[in-house]
Nucleic acid binder design. Structure first.
Lengths: 335, 335
DNA sequence: TTGTACGCGTTATCAA
DNA sequence: TTGATAACGCGTACAA
């Protein structure tokens, strides 16, 4: 079955292809009755414009690339939801790229982004180096980074939608100090290293403000099982900290389970917070305290920012950096 | 910055664009020294072929569409991983489409698939009607459906990679009957309705084989919270079934928590199985028994099947339906 | 208001 | 072995 082209429609409606093109693109110079005829022909033949040919003619694909690490997207469902919903509203197609250590290096992803001539790119944090961003920049591909605050960089003109994890950690630790709590741990999340870095630096700043030094940055393997095993062993000879920051659900649950099984009471012996919120935190006993990070909005705002940059870069030249708020959700693991 | 085209390379290497094209596409008729010259020019200018133009010229985009419902992809991470890895190997780009009730109806997704001229489509179950598949079929777009067994349909020539949930349920229930257990419930999962249908029919068949009738197909709202609340209320006046099938982690955990809190012992008073396995099932006490569904393989096999269909449909004409195995993983909620 | 003709960047066919 | 040139399907100046 041959695909219907604009020529077929033109012949059917007995006009030139230019006229058909005008009808498709809502030009208002077409006379009403010919417009009618053309639309009937389109309907009759079931014509759909070829986006590839349009892309070539216009040098515009109405497609944006989303890049995230293979391990992350199970956790970033809501961000992805936000991205997809807004992309749908603006009629953008999504090219989806994942990166992982072995099979798909960022290098290949960049290569395919450039070849595909997508109109813009959305990058998740922890996925790329500055060099890699510069490559994209050379090709003038509009770009927004979603996740945490982008460090000062020579790569300019990049959109950034973020939550200020540094501030979040800083404020929380200050409050803890006010309550007399100073034995605080931060459990590393290898999937979100840039966010970890910011939280750590916020905590360090708070410690420093109180004339002391933060030492309990805990780093071990990334799976629930190994975390759980590590901690179970650890708690045989060590007491838990007064307060533990974790980033993801599974880390928090590992702490909760191992700690409770070692005979410690939560939140009495050890308070616990998990930064990223999801339903699993409500399935434990007690429920795990967390933050309300506006994940869906992070996606939605990022995509909206990108579309603005695509339509008219000037209009957003000065405010490509958008901070989103957060709030603490106390549950059963803090007091 | 103007993008480098094949013309620029031709001029730089002092050959015609035809020759450049031959070098790019590994034609073996090019003399070695000119090939050298061209490659140097490509290198020097940083030329990358424009995939859009290639797509137009070849009527082939090396892009495949993946369609899944917005709510599902948080659960289908592993399938997606399998899909992406294999796509990467065969150098296919991925167009990612999500469907949801409001914003992006399947109709729009189909429209954009057709316009994009992707080479093939991978559909997740529960995402489309037979009519919608027929539309894709009309446009001759190769298609594979991943998830559960496709029912007999007039839409032919569709790939299908599946796990036989009907058999799984049937076998398990038979074993239960052998052990004298006949009070069995199946909790509906609204996110995976076609799989539910198959499990239900497997259970019904087993009941029928034993001369009785299956009645405990339980259906309520889909979130953890509402499930938990429903069950908590339910167990105030009702005993749990001897054996409960759930599909997703949150449903299983809702049963586990509410049941235990109502004073029932698991697995003594009530046995529990969750079909889809993930790490959260190991975070509960006791750990929840489950099945090993080869999710990653489902994705990988699907994509490989699709690429085969794209390259040479004849070679796979007779075996487009691929069943993958499963196995039971007993943990603490069964005995 | 409509049509003609060129350009978008490739591949492929044919001559040379 | 190489080079012109016609497609691929569309948008758009420009002409009519």
């Amino acid at each position: 079955m041959k695909r219907i082209t604009i020529y077929d429609v033109a012949k059917e409606a007995d006009v030139s292809l230019a006229t058909v093109s005008r009808v498709i693109n809502d030009s208002n110079v077409v006379r009403e009755d010919t417009k009618q005829r053309v639309q009937e022909a389109i309907e009759k033949l079931g014509y759909k414009p070829n986006a590839i040919a349009q892309g070539l003619a216009l040098s515009k694909t109405t497609t944006v690339s989303i890049v995230m690490s293979e391990k992350l997207f199970a956790y970033n469902g809501k961000i992805l939801n936000g991205l997809m919903d807004v992309a749908k509203i603006y009629n953008y197609n999504i090219m989806f790229h994942t990166t992982s250590q072995g099979i798909s290096k960022m290098q290949d992803v960049i290569e395919s982004i450039i070849k595909s001539h997508v109109d813009g790119v959305i990058l998740f944090n922890d996925n790329f180096s500055e060099d890699e961003m510069e490559v994209l920049q050379e090709y003038q591909i509009p770009m927004v980074v979603v996740g945490s605050l982008l460090p000062e960089t020579k790569v300019n003109n990049v959109g950034n939608v973020y939550v200020d994890f540094e501030k979040m950690a800083y404020e929380m630790v200050n409050e803890l100090f006010d309550k007399g709590i100073n034995d605080i741990s931060l459990v590393e999340d290898k999937l979100n290293l840039s966010m970890m870095e910011q939280m750590r630096s916020g905590i360090e700043r708070a410690f420093h403000d109180h004339g002391t030094e933060f030492k309990k940055y805990i780093s071990y393997d990334e799976t629930y099982k190994s975390s759980y095993n590590f901690l179970t062993e650890y708690f045989k000879t060590n007491k838990p900290s007064q307060f533990v920051f974790t980033f993801r659900d599974s880390q928090a649950i590992a702490v909760l389970n191992s700690c409770q099984e070692a005979g410690y009471k939560i939140p009495d012996d050890c308070q616990l917070v998990c930064v990223l919120n999801n339903k699993y935190l409500s399935m434990t006993r007690p429920n795990i305290s967390t933050f309300n990070i506006p994940e869906y909005d992070m996606g939605a705002v990022s995509m909206r920012l990108l579309t603005k940059m695509l339509v008219d870069d000037e209009s957003v030249r000065e405010n490509k950096s958008i901070e989103l708020g957060y709030s603490f959700i106390p549950k059963g693991t803090t007091k």
